[in-house]
Design a protein around this nucleic acid. Sequence first.
DNA 1: TTAAAGATAGACGCAGGATATATCTTTTGC
DNA 2: GCAAAAGATATATCCTGCGTCTATCTTTAA
Lengths: 165, 165
Amino acid sequence: MRLTAFSNYALRTLQFAALRAPARTRIDEIADAHGINRAHIVKIVHLLGREGYLETRRGRGGGFTLARPPEAISVGEILRLTEGPFELVECHHAPTNTCPLIGVCRLSKALAKALDAFLASLDAVTIADIAANRGALLARLSPESDADQAPEPSGRGAVVHHSGL
Amino acid sequence: MRLTAFSNYALRTLQFAALRAPARTRIDEIADAHGINRAHIVKIVHLLGREGYLETRRGRGGGFTLARPPEAISVGEILRLTEGPFELVECHHAPTNTCPLIGVCRLSKALAKALDAFLASLDAVTIADIAANRGALLARLSPESDADQAPEPSGRGAVVHHSGL
DNA sequence: TTAAAGATAGACGCAGGATATATCTTTTGC
DNA sequence: GCAAAAGATATATCCTGCGTCTATCTTTAA
């Protein structure tokens, strides 16, 4: 049982934006920080923008910021968005189900209940919560500058500082 | 987020064995019932036998039964066995972690806690629980004979009745 | 008008899991 | 003791979802 890297990076993108607020964050910053390809974060930012979690802005000086207060975005709702339908087992998806026990199977129900417990636990956690220890996180993200946005601009393709995330 | 079919069938194998108890169950019965290849259930029965959940017996008249009372086997422990290490995100596996936030990241901790909630929910469910409504389950598994083991023997390769599971 | 930024499209690779086949060993019944 | 029935074991192959990459377009500010 594993979450997709897509979900993981989506949450880290929001966490990063919360840390940078009220300044804007750029896609390349996050991609460089993780040492991964731009395209991943591009897709994530695009989706989160469409769904009203990020305010994106094109062009020079652009970037994105949280579209809502971080206390108003829960980890659970992001996972519901990025992880696709949560079908732990085949029989949770009626159209393709082949199990004749459907409707009377208590295993299926127990699994659904456990999934609810999982999501409920994450519904109680917000982006503000996972960005609360700002100092410690920023120290890891950009060891040289603690609380302000990195001043030096970076080119598109060249990985400049690779501070990791 | 999805469980493997392997885990799903492992639980159904135990559920089936509980329903059949104290009679023995054969691998082919379950494979035929699901309409899947023998090899899947073979691997599962072998593992569950090795780990002390099933008593297996070779040869004519062989098959397997639960090695413990069904109340003493929880769904959670089976999942821990069959699902491999539960690493929801990359950073939960220290050897391959690349995230510099490791140790201070509250997202990582929140995910671990949610996973605990998931497993705790399933630790409270036993094989006895998911086989409790015996009548309803058996009616679906073998519509013609309700409470006794199907009398007709079935050959190895030929799918005979395909009652589904 | 140029550089910096997000938006969009599409191709490709690949690991894990699902599926299948073949054969060996053990046990019982005749 | 032989044959049939059952689990044990090994190996091969397919396939889907996810991750990865490249290229190009559009918007915006200096």
